[in-house]
Amino acid sequence: MIKKFPLNRKQRTLVKIIISIIFLVTVILGGVLLDEDKIVTNLSERNSAPSLEHLFGTDWLGRDMFTRTVMGLSLSIGVGLIGAIGSASIALLLGMAAATMGKMADRIISWVIDLFLSVPHLVTLILIAFTLGGGFKGIVIGLTLTHWPSLARVIRAEVMQIRSAEFVQVSQKMGKSRWWIAVHHILPHIVPQLLIGFMLLFPHVILHEAAVTFLGLGLSPHEPAIGIILSESMKYLSSGMWWLAFFPGLCLLIVVRTFDQIGENLRVLMDPTRNHD
């Protein structure tokens, strides 16, 4: 028997979600509020290993890596959120449209989905970001436009399945309009899918953002995004300064996992038929 917690499982799930959200909000706020002075060049404290004063050590210019990591994460979460929300919205719109607007719309949208899926989206992303001149705007638009297809496909399938359910047919014969059914019957079933999809998109988006930035096509070097930190740190890895890449990388992993956690736990809470396990 597992140790008896004072809280039941549903309450624990809620607590987990709250803790995860608090963690993410702290990171974001930390990035905004942390003292910029800490990351000014301080050549007297170059390359110091992690210590109490500099939890994550300092880099080759004497900048505090903890501050840089938090700011980088904060920026990445921001970019990731905007990108994932944008992508999920596109996926929802196209998925719903494909499944409800008739055969022709379905064919066209499915074709576009397949088209996007057939090209690795890192390539499309780089192209779009490059065309738009890189920077914050370029990368956000690029991320939004490239991450929706697989989620759109899932949503389309889900909508089609619900559309043929008996309760939807009954609703039609009670004189409900297509729009009413979409909002009242179909959407409640899609929301959990969308949430999970969104939570899975998020780490994807952050990692791609980091990758593109790492390659030098994303955010500009003076914006301390996590990708830039990692990319710069790579050069110093061979000289034994492990902390430069280790902590930012680990933190990125933790943030990504936290989003996964929130997604999974929300799903458990939202499904009325699963409220017993």
């Binding site: 039941n8 499982r9 549903k10 309450q11």
Partner: peptide, 11 residues
């Protein structure tokens, strides 16, 4: 018997 949850968070 089955353990389940009410609408709130009560078991």
């Amino acid at each position: 018997s089955f353990k389940s949850y009410t609408d709130g968070f009560k078991e």
